[in-house]
Amino acid sequence: MTEIAFHFNVPDKLSYACRLLRKAYRSEAEVGVVAPVRLLGELDRALWSFEPLEFIPHASARLAGSAISKHTKVWLAADAADVPHHAVLVNLGEVVPEGFERFDRLIEIVSADPADRQAARQRWKHYGDRGYAIQKHEVGVT
């Protein structure tokens, strides 16, 4: 069964996602990131400029299976079905990613924005109603 973790009160979702992806990259984990296309574009740009000496190789999941596949384990996708592995899925979007259950682990990143938190509550309920154990991490709480 998929392990699900919510990371709440994230001050900046893109910056947090970059740090999370850097950690995953260093541990050689395979990670897919699912989000609306506009947000994926912002994340792509952020990953290019996140830390000058710590580039995180990443690519659009549409390129899975191409020559670039041997250079990255971080895939950006508008649809979880396009991610070419079943390891970790990071959700930056507001809806439950369709097909999340094929992944070993799902990480939900949630800002302090009231609308984002409300959407996260609906996702939490969705997972809980289906019997998934959920871990909660408060990030921005001091």
Rank of each mutant, 00 (worst) to 15 (best):
M1G: 14
E3K: 13
A5D: 11
F6A: 01
H7K: 10
H7I: 09
N9F: 13
V10N: 02
P11F: 06
P11I: 10
D12E: 14
D12I: 08
K13C: 04
A17V: 02
C18S: 15
C18E: 08
R19G: 15
R19H: 14
L20M: 12
R22Y: 09
Y25A: 14
R26N: 15
R26D: 15
A29T: 05
A29Q: 14
E30G: 09
V31C: 13
V31E: 03
G32Q: 08
G32I: 04
V33R: 01
V37T: 11
V37G: 00
R38T: 09
L39D: 07
L40C: 02
G41S: 06
L43W: 01
R45P: 00
A46K: 04
A46R: 08
S49P: 01
F50L: 05
P52F: 07
L53C: 09
L53V: 07
L53Q: 14
F55R: 12
F55E: 12
P57Y: 08
A61K: 01
A64C: 05
A64F: 05
S66Q: 11
A67N: 09
K70Y: 03
K70R: 15
H71R: 14
K73P: 04
K73G: 12
K73D: 08
K73Q: 14
V74A: 02
V74M: 13
A77N: 02
D79L: 02
A80W: 02
A81R: 11
P84H: 03
P84G: 05
V88G: 00
V90M: 02
N91W: 09
L92R: 00
V95H: 11
V96I: 10
V96H: 01
P97T: 05
G99T: 06
F100R: 04
F100S: 02
F100P: 04
E101T: 11
E101W: 07
R102A: 13
F103D: 08
L106V: 15
L106Q: 08
I107S: 10
V110N: 08
V110F: 12
S111K: 07
A112W: 06
D113Y: 09
A115Q: 15
R117G: 06
Q118V: 10
Q118I: 09
Q118T: 13
Q118G: 05
A120C: 09
Q122F: 04
Y127M: 06
G128L: 08
G128W: 10
R130F: 04
A133C: 06
I134S: 02
Q135N: 15
Q135Y: 06
K136A: 12
K136Q: 14
E138H: 14
V139K: 05
V139Q: 09
G140H: 03
